[in-house]
Structure formats: C-alpha cells, structure tokens
C-alpha cells in the first residue's frame, strides 16, 4: 500500500537540444482567421471610427456597460440601446510591463491599464494603454482621456485610440 507515489521523469536542459543529445521535430502551425465583429462590438468599432466610445444600456438593471453587448448577464434580457459615453475615465488598475508577448525584454515599459469609462456604470471599462507619461507618475484613480488617431487614419479598431493620457 505504501509504494512510492512519486515517479521520476527524464528532465532535459537547453544544452541537450543545442548539443544534439535529443531528437526533436520543429514545426510551425499556420492558423489564419477573419473574425466577424458581431452586432455589439461591430457598433463599438464603428463608434471608435467616428471618435466616440459606446456602451450598452440595460433598462431592467439600469446599468450601462462597455464594451457593449447584446445581452445583460445579470438579468439575461436583451440590451437594445447603445449609449454614447465620454472619452475620459479613470485608471482602475495598471501595470508597468517590461516584457513583450514572446518574453523579450524591453527597457521602456508598456503601460497596460483597465480604464473605467465616464458615463458607464461604476467599475465598467476596458483594457487599453497609457502613454505620454513617466511610468513613476501613473497611479490608480488617475483621470485620463483618450488620444485618438487622426480621423482619416481611423479604421474601426480598438487601436483607433492610440492610448489614454493623463487629464
């Protein structure tokens, strides 16, 4: 009954690969997609192209949420009304990130943040970045405003907002 329940495995190091001590097969998967934006996010992106941030309103819960959606998860009723929100807000939280998505080091940090958008119900916002600021100055609760791409360059993407800057 008391046989050893811990079984060893063969642990490899980077050297085992570079010195050719183990065999392996390298390959790359090519997966391409064209994602439809859908009804609610499609409207949201259309709004961004026009320089406005949209939310959706639940008449039952009296909530305004962003990003907009077609169903309220609280009451499961349709959210039929889009509402124009301000392009200002407040930093809910942020990070100073010194690595890229593939774990390469960068010296000037990126500043991802959750921005609570003015006009939406408290605590409702979306992911974006903060710019035009020294990393040490960013703080939770800081008031910010969207910095937009020039209208001619906007294409209906979350990156139509370049970043948010301190207000």
């Amino acid at each position: 009954m008391n046989s050893n329940p811990y079984v060893p495995v063969v642990s490899l190091t980077e050297d085992d690969f570079s010195n050719g001590k183990v065999l392996f097969r390298h390959d790359k998967l090519d997966a391409r997609y064209a994602w439809d934006t859908g009804i609610a996010i499609g409207a949201f992106l259309g709004g961004l192209k026009g320089g406005v941030i949209l939310g959706s309103y639940c008449a039952t819960c009296r909530k305004i949420v962003t990003p907009p959606r077609i169903v309220c998860e609280w009451c499961f009723r349709p959210m039929r009304r889009l509402v124009q929100l301000a392009d200002t807000g407040r930093v809910n939280t942020f990070s100073l990130c010194y690595v890229t998505w593939d774990v390469k080091r960068i010296s000037e940090p990126e500043i991802p943040a959750v921005i609570e958008i003015d006009g939406a119900s408290p605590g409702h916002g979306f992911l974006h970045k903060i710019g035009e600021i020294s990393p040490t100055e960013v703080h939770i609760g800081m008031r910010v405003q969207a910095v937009w791409k020039p209208a001619a360059e906007r294409c209906g993407s979350i990156t139509d907002i370049l970043y948010f800057r301190k207000l």
Binding site: W101, P112, I158
Partner: peptide, 9 residues
C-alpha cells in the same frame, strides 16, 4: 477584436 490588437501578454 478588442484586446489582441493591443498585443497583450
């Protein structure tokens, strides 16, 4: 659509 274009990790 609304997060990956920001190149998150």
């Amino acid at each position: 659509t609304i997060e990956r274009p920001l190149k998150p990790n």
